[in-house]
């Protein structure tokens, strides 16, 4: 089935899109060229910024190392569990607070207060509580991924137009019908934006947790290579983390386009 957005597409608009895509690729090429040339020409110390090709090489050899898949799996696990649990918690608590106004009034000051804390301050604490293993990193990822989903769920459910509720009430709809047929779907674009943020935050949570204290994982490797001044390898790890973040973002973006096709603020 054709996406309704595409019904208005014209050949001209599509050509326009292509110019922008080529422009973006061009900018990417320029950045890579600078990355390669600045250290080679001696404008930047290659120890501080290894040339792009060196990093690519380091990336390739790193991925060949027998220890590498284990570290990748550990971090990937932490990120995914943190993301899923954080999202479900944020969604569940957000829905509960939105449909039960008394609970919201009672707890809102704590939600706002807790939200204002930079969550990474808890990282050392979680190590003390949950040890150096994966649990402390997962907890960190959950705590940091949870808030954007919670806040967006509450905001989204509160922004349901009062006329839509009124229409449902005039039809004698049950609260459950109002929630599933109107409120939840209305809030979904906003909730999904929170879920997208949650993924990025889960990556941050897992890596910060590993920075503070770990014996395995990509954050541990990054820390290690930094200390050993193997900056090319450190960059290689950063590239992998960037890849994980970008992959998650684009998968979620694709899901958003597919499932929330009615979103109004979409640029394309």
């Amino acid at each position: 089935m054709k996406h309704p957005d595409q019904w208005t597409d014209t050949a001209k608009q599509r050509r326009h899109d292509w110019y922008f895509r080529l422009g973006t690729i061009g900018i990417g090429v320029v950045i890579l060229a600078l990355w390669e040339l600045l250290p080679l020409l001696g404008l930047v110390n290659p120890i501080i910024l290894p040339p792009f090709t060196k990093v690519a090489e380091a990336l390739y050899t790193l991925m060949q190392q027998p220890f590498f898949p284990g570290h990748l799996a550990v971090t990937f696990n932490e990120i995914m569990i943190g993301f899923v649990v954080g999202t479900l918690l944020g969604l569940g608590i957000g829905i509960a607070l939105a449909v039960w106004p008394a609970a919201k009034r009672l707890t809102y000051p704590f939600v706002v207060g807790f939200q204002a804390i930079p969550k990474i301050v808890f990282a050392p604490l979680f190590i003390a509580w949950f040890g150096f293993g994966q649990t402390s990193k997962i907890v960190m990822a959950v705590v940091i991924a949870f808030f954007p989903v919670l806040i967006n769920t509450m905001v989204g459910l509160e922004s349901v137009p009062s006329d839509a509720r009124k229409l449902m009430r005039s039809l004698k709809a049950t609260p459950l019908q109002i929630f599933w047929k109107v409120s939840f779907l209305h809030a979904l674009p906003i909730i999904f934006a929170g879920i997208q943020a949650a993924f990025t935050f889960a990556v941050i949570g897992a890596i910060v947790g590993e920075f503070v204290g770990a014996q395995e994982g990509l954050g541990y490797l990054l820390n290690l290579y930094n200390f050993q001044l193997r900056i090319d390898r450190a960059f290689a790890v950063i590239v992998i983390l960037a890849g994980i973040g970008a992959a998650g973002f684009f998968i979620l973006e694709w899901m958003d386009r597919k499932f929330i096709f009615w979103r109004e603020d979409r640029s394309h």
């Binding site: 009124k166 004698k172 047929k181 779907l185």
Partner: peptide, 25 residues
């Protein structure tokens, strides 16, 4: 039956599905 100043249609539903909303409820 109630009608408002704005149509109050659900944007994720087609015309037909919007019209069928009351029956569903």
């Amino acid at each position: 039956g109630f009608m408002f100043q704005t149509a109050v249609l659900l944007p994720w539903r087609t015309v037909e599905a919007n019209v069928l909303l009351p029956a569903e409820v």
